[in-house]
Amino acid sequence: MAVEQKVREYILENYLFTDDQSTLKNEDSFLEKGIIDSTGILEVIYFIEEDFAIKVSDEEMVPENLDSVNNIVKFIEKKQNAG
């Protein structure tokens, strides 16, 4: 499954509780739209680490890497390419 699709499915399933793809835009800010809160983001990190075998360091826990589907996909692809 493509990274983007997997991330979208995770967010829809665990934070929006729906299969309706139209409820989530890839550029939606999780913080501004209230999709994920401060503990939710820890779960997202756990998901990234488990499902993509990537280690997310404390310093990488910033909105540029985690605050939207697009940002997460970019971050995962960057880490995979670097690894």
Partner: peptide, 8 residues
Amino acid sequence: NSMMYPHR
């Protein structure tokens, strides 16, 4: 208004 990114 958020603790989402504690570094910030």
